[in-house]
């Protein structure tokens, strides 16, 4: 077990104007990390009490760090992967005793559950799913949705976790017969689940019955749009999409996120807002996360940008620190913190 001290001093060089609404809380350095691929903050149950933890995924190792106070972190558990590299962490809300990770080379080949047996305090991992996994998302009430395969050969399934990381219940969702790129939960409509497809369609399921409720085509001017979050308000569906392959256009700048409103009854949709970079900033979407009404993205320029979805504009810019580009950005699942990561395993925690 190792303890890492907060290092805030070297951040003084950062342009404080650029930080906007961000305030550095602590820094976590993971020396055993060769190439970090993901980060997540979650509650972990230990001896009957829940404590905030940070999970750092590198290609060959996943580690769980406990917070000793807000400035010191202790590595509690480590899981090693020798055969297939780790691609991402899959945060599952309402789960406090296990971690889900996706493994593969370019595409996800396996979903594994990482556990810690309380008696021996030893780490173990269980294979949950394998195949050509195209999209995966952790859902409320200890569930995980995944789509395996493409087109007519696609299987969409929700697994509910039982004790010891196994599946307690399995529910199949009707396939939209086109490859799903991403899933999103719908705030305000608990049983609704959204998906965005390779054909630029948004699909809605009833996650309880598995029914495919609607397939809605959205504007073709943005290809490969990925849904991050949706909100049901006054009979309308507001969907946040990210665009990683937009072309610079004179009229709209370079939108990184887009807020779309859809009437699920008629499938008619309209653009509400496009979230572009402030003037003078360049870069396309590389990685991002949306929580409540804030969206964060790592740009190809190495900078992190944050937008307030209600205000409609960029509220903070975080340029690379110590001449190292950002590669990861996630909102914390335990508080209003932002986790920003660099390839070498450094994680910076900011209050927003």
């Amino acid at each position: 077990h190792s303890i890492e001290q907060t290092e805030i001093g070297d951040l003084a060089a950062c342009d404080s104007l650029n930080l906007g609404n961000l305030q550095l809380v602590s820094k976590l350095k993971n020396p055993s990390c060769s190439c970090s691929v993901d980060v997540s903050a979650m509650w972990w149950e230990r001896a009957g009490a829940k404590e905030p933890c940070i999970v750092i995924a590198c290609e060959d190792v996943v580690s769980l760090w406990r917070s000793l106070d807000m400035s010191q972190w202790e590595k509690a558990y480590t899981w090693h992967f020798t055969e297939v590299p780790v691609l991402q962490i899959i945060p599952v809300p309402d789960v406090f005793d296990l971690i889900c990770v996706a493994l593969g080379n370019l595409e996800i080949r396996e979903i594994r559950v990482l556990l810690c047996s309380s008696s021996a305090e030893s780490e173990k991992q269980v294979l949950l799913k394998s195949g050509n996994i195209k999209a995966v998302l952790g859902l409320a009430k200890r569930r995980l949705v995944s789509s395996i395969g493409t087109f007519g050969d696609q299987q969409v399934q929700i697994i509910t976790f039982g004790e010891n990381g196994g599946s307690k219940d399995e529910q199949f969702l009707m396939s939209p017969d086109e490859t799903i790129l991403a899933f999103a939960e719908v705030q305000g409509a608990q049983e609704a689940l959204l998906g965005s497809t390779i054909m630029n369609n948004i699909v809605i399921w009833n996650s309880k019955t598995g029914q495919l409720l609607k397939k809605m085509h959205i504007d073709d001017c943005y290809q490969a749009s990925v849904c991050h979050r949706a909100y049901s308000e006054m009979g309308l569906l507001f969907v946040v999409l990210s665009h990683s392959c937009v072309k610079e256009s004179q009229s709209f700048g370079n939108p990184v996120f887009q807020l779309l409103v859809i009437n699920p009854k008629t499938t008619l949709s309209l653009d509400v807002l496009l979230y572009s970079l402030p003037q003078g900033q360049a870069g396309r979407f590389l990685d991002g996360d949306v929580k409540d009404h804030v969206a964060a993205a790592v740009l190809t320029s190495g900078t992190i940008a944050i937008w307030d979805l209600l205000l409609g504009h960029c509220t903070a810019l975080l340029p690379p620190v110590s001449e190292q580009n950002w590669s990861l950005v996630k909102w914390s699942g335990t508080d209003s913190h932002l986790l920003a990561g660099q390839k070498d395993g450094n994680i910076f925690i900011y209050r927003y």
Partner: peptide, 23 residues
Amino acid sequence: CRKADLGPISLNWFEELSSEAPL
């Protein structure tokens, strides 16, 4: 945005679509 362009809106869209969609 122009709300009228979205057609008739239902507050119970989820329940209505669930009752119409095939199981």
